[in-house]
Design a protein around this nucleic acid. Structure first.
Lengths: 222, 222
DNA sequence: TTGACAACATACATGCGTGTATGTATAGTG
DNA sequence: CACTATACATACACGCATGTATGTTGTCAA
């Protein structure tokens, strides 16, 4: 009698244990995120991570070369969703790119506000210091960030093509300005100071930023 | 014959060794800043700090309870100049507080740009994570930050009193917005990514921020 | 069924950082 | 001149985290 599902035919060498090994790896990653985001990277030992994942350090060293590789794996795994969100939004070429961008920013903030996992991830990569053993990953992670920035820049470029910006406006500077602002918000928001409440202030903050401080204002309505 | 300066009269129990002990303490602090800002807090050992200060760990433990106390001492020592600069600026009640504030921001950035020591200090306290042994100092340092924010808020309050802001403008939100932006700039600037060059872009960034993104613009000239 | 390999667990060696206890020299004090 | 306190240096004990080597179990393939 033939087995209902013939693994060796559809996926050669795909043993059932490999699937469970993947589950173990995922559990280790989740556990590491837990430890890192609560105690910090340097205060988390591989033993703590292993125990929280109900395995031993042996399993950890089987799946990862060392602690830094876990750190990098977390970044790799968790950076994509954000890029994906922006890419999907960019697919729509709307009439007023700046307003579209504003809505995207608000959406990103509000998404974050209701997703504790994402918050902990961001908090981790914001607060960790890339010194010591993490130094080699500094450039790599920064490169990914630069690519994200290039995506934001497209909104401003679209706006400029539509003559919706000052003549002398530089998309690169505008992107940088926005990026700094968002980073500042997120940093403050994730600091645990409770200084910023996204739900009640997020929209207002973004709004304020896009309007600027000058008294001559022609508010962009949400 | 009387000694020219009678220490015991002017400062009782002020031995000459105490002065040198203070020098040693300062050297340890400077050395700690060196280590922390280059290798990170958790990657710096007391032995490294001691050796860089040309003393032993014995001296370190004499002047400080432990490593966390050195960390806190650095913050205490180095937070004041910034507060002082703002306070001095606030002493002048100028006609256009927002423009005054803008100039202050630019000044603070440009001061930072030419002062490597200050940069390293800020970098340290931006990138360190207040987890583990540093957790107890999180609130303390945040309280200091909140006080600084209150200072910035005064500019907006002055502006509002002079009817230079929208009716519905909230000084607290405005302060928060500015703070987030500045923090974002500084964070990015100090990250070592070289994404921001204060000398060439600083003024422009601040300018852009104060003007906002809307096309209706009435640029506030520098 | 048996060898081989994957997927771990266990055990061991090592180094490193901390904290503390103790030693020591020097300056002031009565 | 003895005495004490300061300002360190030196020495020791301890735990802890890492990395690696080795052991063990289950699975698949032939």
């Amino acid at each position: 009698m033939l087995s209902i599902i013939n693994y060796s035919a559809t996926m050669p060498n795909m043993k059932r244990t490999k699937e469970e090994a993947q589950k173990t790896k995922d559990k280790i990653l989740a556990s590491a995120l837990d430890c890192f985001s609560t105690q910090g990277y340097f205060n988390s030992s591989l033993d703590e991570i292993a125990k929280k994942a109900s395995v031993t350090r042996g399993a950890v060293y089987w799946h990862f070369k060392n602690k830094t590789e876990i750190f990098d794996a977390l970044h790799t795994q968790l950076h994509e969703p954000f890029t994906q969100t922006i890419l999907e939004d960019l697919a729509h070429d709307e009439e007023q790119p700046i307003i579209q961008l504003k809505h995207l920013c608000i959406k990103l903030l509000e998404d974050l506000d209701v997703n504790n996992t994402k918050k902990r991830i961001m908090k981790l990569f914001f607060e960790c210091d890339y010194s010591g053993q993490l130094a080699p990953f500094k450039k790599q992670h920064q490169d990914k960030k630069l690519k994200s920035l290039k995506l934001f820049e497209q909104y401003f470029e679209r706006a400029k093509k539509r003559n919706q910006l000052h003549q002398h406006a530089d998309p690169q500077i505008l992107t940088l300005t926005l990026h700094c602002f968002l980073k500042g918000i997120l940093f403050e928001y994730l600091s645990g100071l409770e200084l910023i409440d996204i739900k009640s202030q997020g929209k207002e903050l973004i709004q304020q930023f896009f309007e600027g401080f000058n008294t001559c204002h022609n508010p962009i309505n949400l």
